[in-house]
Simulated scan of single mutants.
Amino acid sequence: MADWTRLGLCGVLAALACGCATQPGAPAFSVVGEAELFAPGVVSTDFAEIRLTISPDGRTALWFSRNRPGGAGGYDIWMSRRTGDAWGEAAPVSFNTAGRDFDPAFSADGRYVYFCSDRPGGLGGDDLYRVAVTADGFGAVEHLGAGVNSASNEWAPMLSPDGARLLFSSNRPGGAGRMDLFVAARAGDGFAAAAPVPGGVNTAADEFDSTYLADGTTIIFSRAPDLAADRIDLVFAALTAGAYGAGETLPLGVNDAQADTYGPMLDWSDRQQITFSGRRGGTGDMDLFVVRYRLEGGGR
Score class of each variant (00 low, 15 high):
280 R>L: 13
152 S>K: 01
269 S>T: 02
45 T>M: 00
217 T>R: 14
187 A>M: 12
141 V>A: 03
117 S>G: 06
237 A>C: 09
83 T>I: 06
10 C>R: 12
55 S>A: 14
153 N>V: 05
229 A>Q: 12
125 G>A: 11
74 G>Y: 04
194 A>C: 13
224 A>W: 06
208 F>S: 09
143 H>M: 03
117 S>A: 08
51 R>V: 13
286 M>I: 08
24 P>C: 13
31 V>L: 15
8 G>F: 10
293 Y>W: 12
278 G>D: 00
27 P>E: 03
39 A>Y: 03
98 A>R: 12
72 A>S: 15
162 D>T: 04
300 R>L: 10
116 C>Y: 06
78 W>K: 00
101 D>K: 00
136 D>I: 00
202 N>K: 03
10 C>N: 13
168 F>C: 06
162 D>H: 02
254 V>W: 07
193 A>D: 14
217 T>L: 05
39 A>D: 12
293 Y>D: 05
116 C>I: 10
50 I>A: 09
238 A>D: 02
192 A>T: 07
132 A>N: 07
55 S>R: 01
2 A>Y: 07
224 A>N: 01
43 V>T: 06
79 M>Q: 15
145 G>D: 04
52 L>A: 10
156 A>H: 12
117 S>Q: 02
21 A>G: 14
20 C>A: 15
269 S>V: 02
233 D>C: 10
14 A>K: 13
34 E>V: 15
91 A>C: 07
64 F>W: 13
229 A>K: 12
162 D>G: 05
102 F>P: 00
192 A>C: 05
238 A>L: 07
258 Q>L: 11
109 D>T: 10
210 S>N: 05
78 W>R: 01
295 L>R: 09
182 F>M: 14
286 M>H: 10
30 S>L: 11
54 I>W: 01
287 D>A: 00
147 G>C: 11
167 L>K: 12
34 E>S: 14
181 L>T: 12
22 T>F: 07
219 I>M: 10
81 R>H: 11
140 A>D: 14
32 V>I: 15
215 D>E: 02
146 A>W: 02
14 A>V: 13
76 D>K: 00
13 L>K: 11
67 N>H: 08
297 G>P: 10
234 L>C: 11
162 D>N: 07
188 G>R: 06
213 L>G: 10
282 G>A: 02
91 A>E: 15
13 L>Y: 12
192 A>W: 09
283 T>L: 11
35 A>F: 14
294 R>D: 11
116 C>L: 06
208 F>P: 05
254 V>N: 02
172 R>S: 08
294 R>M: 03
43 V>P: 04
291 V>T: 14
134 T>G: 06
226 D>M: 04
157 P>G: 01
237 A>L: 04
75 Y>V: 05
12 V>N: 08
300 R>F: 07
152 S>V: 08
219 I>R: 06
291 V>P: 06
99 G>P: 01
264 P>N: 02
26 A>W: 12
152 S>C: 09
295 L>H: 08
241 A>R: 14
204 A>C: 05
239 L>D: 08
249 T>V: 15
84 G>Q: 12
245 G>E: 05
130 R>K: 15
47 F>G: 00
15 A>E: 15
129 Y>D: 10
212 Y>C: 10
224 A>C: 03
287 D>K: 00
159 L>S: 03
206 D>Y: 08
50 I>C: 05
144 L>M: 13
142 E>D: 14
222 S>I: 09
104 P>K: 00
22 T>V: 13
83 T>S: 11
